[in-house]
């Protein structure tokens, strides 16, 4: 097994015979332990979502889809799901656009105070969600524009989530832009492509994999985040994770397991779409 490779390459000395077996066994045990560790909460949740009973209790004696039916019949849950998706899409658009533009600027232009701006853009990513949620709630809680209040709106959550998603997009895209051959951009300018057209017609298609991946990251972060959302949403704009948290605090039912599965499904569906796109892209350019 895996550790055996280490043992073979390393332990060619006197104890090699014993070490190979011992290391191999240790490797298998450790790998199984980690695998089990990662899979336990996932497996438990999936199993519980098909439970027919009304309480969370093992062993599960009878199975059914009734909690799934309940989930999609309840406007409270479907409304939360809709909120989650809208907020995640908003976050994706805002953070992808602003992050890509900033990363492009850092790659192509000289700015005064470049280092300061870099730190300023990256800092929110390392700030705990409670702090960001609290800060925005206090600073902008009272703002109302013509009857529309910022606090409790989906927009406020989009902005808050962008504080994590935008630096991430920026970081990923900065690394991606660095891999682009400058000569190709120069070739476009040289052939008469103005900067804006060059950006959209040459640069963006070349880094499309980076763009799609960072958009996916932004989407997933927003979909899963709940601390900031907890601070910033009101009853009508609660996201799925927020509603789950509140339900968990009152009473846990198999319905929560269904919610967790739905949330994860949304994430993995997006990932699969991206994978399909990526494979098609490879097939088109590679071969």
């Amino acid at each position: 097994m895996t550790e055996a490779a280490l043992a073979q390459s390393v332990g060619s000395g006197r104890l090699a015979g014993i070490s190979v077996t011992v290391w191999r066994a240790a490797g298998i045990v450790f790998a199984s332990f980690v695998t089990l560790y990662v899979l336990i909460p996932i497996g438990v949740t999936i199993a519980m979502s098909f439970n027919d009973g009304s309480f969370i209790r093992f062993p599960i004696t009878s199975w059914s889809l009734r909690w799934y039916e309940g989930f999609f019949a309840s406007t409270r849950w479907t409304q939360a799901l809709a909120n989650s998706l809208v907020i995640a899409l908003g976050t994706t658009v805002i953070s992808t656009v602003s992050g890509i533009l900033a990363a492009w600027t850092f790659d192509r232009y000289n700015l005064p105070l470049k280092n300061v701006i870099y730190v300023l853009i990256m800092l929110p990513l390392f700030t705990p969600g409670v702090v960001l949620g609290l800060g925005i709630a206090i600073a902008f809680g009272g703002i109302e524009i013509g009857g529309w209040s910022f606090f409790g709106s989906r927009g406020s959550v989009v902005i808050a989530h962008s504080l994590w998603a935008m630096p991430l997009v920026f970081m990923l895209m900065e690394a991606t832009f660095r891999t682009v051959d400058r000569r190709i951009i120069e070739a476009s300018y040289d052939l008469g492509g103005r900067p804006v057209r060059t950006f959209f017609e040459i640069v963006l298609p070349m880094v499309s994999t980076g763009v799609i991946s960072s958009a996916l990251f932004a989407f997933v972060i927003s979909l899963n985040e709940f601390v900031m959302a907890l601070f910033l949403t009101s009853r009508g704009t609660q996201t799925l994770p927020v509603l789950m948290w509140l339900s968990l605090r009152s009473a846990g039912t198999p319905e929560l397991a269904v919610t967790a599965v739905v949330l994860a499904t949304a994430v993995f569906a997006c990932m699969s779409l991206v994978m399909v796109w990526y494979v098609r892209q490879l097939r088109k350019l590679g071969r």
Binding site: S98, A102, Y109, L111, L120, P195
Partner: peptide, 25 residues
């Protein structure tokens, strides 16, 4: 002005929705 215009959205988000709330906090 071009680089400033390009970096503006990210900078505004960072300054207004991160810098300001932190100072306010």
């Amino acid at each position: 002005l071009v680089p400033w215009a390009l970096v503006a959205p990210a900078l505004v988000i960072a300054l207004v929705f991160f810098g300001l709330p932190i100072l306010n906090t």
